[in-house]
Design a binder for these strands. Structure first.
Length: 414
RNA sequence: GCUAGGGUAGGGUAGCGGCUAUCCUAAAGGACUGUGGAUCCUUUGACCCGGGUUCGAUUCCCGGCCCUGGCCCCA
């Protein structure tokens, strides 16, 4: 017997119906927000992926030589591919671009809760707009997807990196990237290690800085205006975003949280992460603004903002909240036969199928009892019984499998 | 890469140094030769792999593989 490869999943029909429902809600929500779908190949050149993440990424992805000796890989993320797509057709694409995609991604990592080697990830991005309205649109899609999926226990923690960057500059902090990394880990590491890390980055007055991060809200952040240009830009941006979120009616799902920085180097302004309200689980997903990334892939300067949401954690969250759809397939019609009535079975099936119904019939030469048993098993809503006796009078029986009620109708009425 | 726990029919489980390896469920069929969900019966189907200890290992020991968590990392 062969087994699945580690960290991969099979989706059997019952699971597939539930997943399709979830994906449908996600697609519809994105499209109602004016996003259009794109797809790119599952394989890309290793150089493209390494462009953003460096050569060391090789250890964490599926990378191999193809028969032509080219180093290629299964895509571990979407950003390089979509940046390439934009750079390739820079001139003809009208800005802003509002794109979404639900590609499969592969990462060669140790699987654990909420993390597999093969997974789907919704990517939602807006390219070409610097406006905080674009940031808001991206946040809004994320929030509406969560709500439309029936989720309630979540909160968007929103920040702007430039605020912290400006603040750290005021305190003459030497290594700002490293400081970002440490502050990002604040909740995960012991207090001592955290303080130690801050000191190493040259942050002596960490009490003051942490106090600011903890106490500032969207209501009082304006008090910090006038300190330096970076902070002013961040403040204006955050106030705009929260105002727009208010206009859109999703403000209640958001909170200003200046401690959110995200470890990644390429985010430039707004960043966000989504947590359950009590922050018990790990981050559900996150994203932000990355204005310089497309350019680094050889395109023109293209401001961008977006997020990536993996299906694995989403499924865990939905199951935890009890809103994962029922895993059950069903069928509109099962046509049962008694005796030599094949010609009627086929023609009835064709008529119903042309009308758009899902229809199936016996392929096992079963007796009526077992045909009904099978119809029950596949959750057929209705069974049409084509019997020799009735067909002589031009009649068939329709049985409602839920009520058990059965009526005799004219065969031509189908 | 590091670390904890675990691997018995398709799914869920019991068990023991030696019995025909337990039960539930599932699937196929029958009881019911023209009516599903109930009941009963039949059939199908498992001790992860390799080595060691032993008269004998599914059980004990070692190694590997795999699974479930945690760490590193997290695009």
């Amino acid at each position: 017997m062969f087994q699945r490869l580690r960290g991969t999943r099979d989706f059997y029909p019952e699971e597939m119906t539930a997943r399709n429902k979830v994906f449908k809600i996600i697609r519809e929500t994105a499209e109602r927000h004016g996003f259009v779908e794109v797809v790119s190949p599952a394989i890309e050149s290793f150089d493209l992926i390494a462009k953003k993440s460096g050569e060391d990424i090789k250890e964490e992805i599926y990378a191999f030589k193809d028969k032509g000796g080219r180093m290629i890989c299964l895509i571990p993320e979407f950003t390089p591919s979509v940046s390439r797509m934009i750079a390739n057709r820079q001139k003809e694409l009208g800005k802003p671009l509002k794109w979404y995609s639900i590609p499969r991604h592969w990462r060669y990592e140790r699987p654990q809760s909420g993390r597999l080697r093969e997974f789907y990830q919704l990517n939602v991005d807006i390219f070409g707009s610097e406006s905080p309205k674009a940031d808001t649109e991206v946040l809004s899609v994320g929030i509406c997807i969560m709500l439309n999926l029936g989720l309630k226990d979540f909160l968007f923690h929103i920040s702007n990196r430039k605020f912290l960057q400006g603040l750290l500059q005021e305190y003459n902090v030497s290594n700002i990237q490293e400081a970002f990394r440490i502050i990002d880990k604040r909740d995960k590491i012991p207090e001592e290690e955290f303080v130690d890390g801050l000191l190493k980055c040259g942050i002596k007055d960490y009490d003051e800085i942490l106090d600011i991060l903890d106490s500032v809200t969207i209501e009082n952040i304006g008090d910090f205006r006038g300190r330096n240009e970076l902070m002013d830009k961040a403040i204006d941006n955050l106030i705009d975003i929260f105002r727009y979120l208010e206009y859109y009616g999703v403000r209640e799902h958001c909170v200003l949280d200046l401690s959110i920085v995200r470890g990644l180097a390429y985010y430039t302004d707004m960043v966000f992460e989504v947590y359950d309200k009590k922050k018990e689980m790990r981050s559900l997903f996150g994203g932000g603004r990355y204005d310089d990334l497309v350019e680094s892939f050889g395109g023109e300067h293209t401001p961008a903002v977006g997020f990536g949401m993996g299906d694995v954690v989403l499924e865990l969250m939905m199951k935890k909240e009890g809103v994962w759809p029922e895993e059950k397939t069903d069928m509109d019609y099962y046509i049962a036969n008694i005796g030599d009535v094949d010609r009627y079975v086929f023609s009835i099936a064709k008529k119903l199928r042309n009308k758009g119904y899902r229809v199936t019939f016996d392929l096992m030469e079963r007796n009526l009892s077992n045909q009904l048993k099978y119809a029950d098993k596949i959750n057929a809503k209705k069974v049409i019984i084509v019997g020799e006796k009735e067909i002589k009078e031009g009649k068939i029986l329709i049985r409602d499998m839920e009520t058990g009620k059965q009526e005799k109708i004219d065969v031509n009425k189908i």
